[in-house]
Design a protein around this nucleic acid. Sequence first.
DNA 1: AGTATCCCTACCATTCCGATGGGAAAGATG
DNA 2: CATCTTTCCCATCGGAATGGTAGGGATACT
Lengths: 152, 152
Amino acid sequence: MRISARADYAVRAALQLAASQEDGPVKAEAIATAQDIPHKFLEGILNDMRRGGLVASQRGVNGGYRLARPAADISIADVIRVVDGPLVSVRGVRPPDLSYTGPAEALLPLWIALRSNVREILDGVSLADVATSRLPADVSALTHTPDAWVNP
Amino acid sequence: MRISARADYAVRAALQLAASQEDGPVKAEAIATAQDIPHKFLEGILNDMRRGGLVASQRGVNGGYRLARPAADISIADVIRVVDGPLVSVRGVRPPDLSYTGPAEALLPLWIALRSNVREILDGVSLADVATSRLPADVSALTHTPDAWVNP
DNA sequence: AGTATCCCTACCATTCCGATGGGAAAGATG
DNA sequence: CATCTTTCCCATCGGAATGGTAGGGATACT
């Protein structure tokens, strides 16, 4: 279960925009420096987010990027879907399009359960939540068990 | 959030072995045909599982593969970890090794919460559970909401 | 010996990550 | 109005990982 570099960078860039929402447009270069993201790679990601309607861009001297909607109205899942397609996929296909046979038949409901769980978290957390470090109570509760922080 | 082809194939192969546990070793070719997996690719995956101690192999005329432990003692997470490394990773690094700055700081607890949720499912479901189509009640409950089966 | 099966190495195609080099538009300035 | 700078925008290219193929060697049983 891997979260791609594109997705991670996109979310961080969006968070940076959420934090600078009042200060007018933010340049790609400024985001790249603040978040330590390869800046040319970031430009492509910002472009995807623009085409996906998450951010708006402004060229010229005092240009840059800004969020197209309030940060509280954009979920982490929204960002990931725009830059990476389906939130969770198996071999590149989304769970309902899979078909398993024999003893693997019950694998489909398992992936469905997994996706449902992932959605519950990523759909339920907004950019504003993360940018202000105020995660919803149910998500925060998951981090309070000490086991959650150690590697297997 | 992508589950790799290796992981999907590995789990399906392990399920096939779980279902044929009594019948002696199963040939790679037989698994490949039953589950429609490219058989040379599958051989490499079975090799990883052997090195990881999940399956045992037997060469020669009546050879093949079998599970090294009872199917009830192998979780889906065990299989994925053996063939794909960490269960969930961001840009290839596991969550506790990440470091975020500025407005992205709360992203780390979010990934931790996500991983904790994924673990709860994949560590808690065994090959025997899936092979017999008897998922644990809490997992099964997640599939009972109709929304879980539709795409966004 | 012979054969069936696992096992190992190398290779090809595609996608992901990232770097480079410019062009196009918007605004500032003369 | 013309030009210049700044910034977004676009197209291409190279290395690494993923997904998949091919051939042959090693070993266990008959």
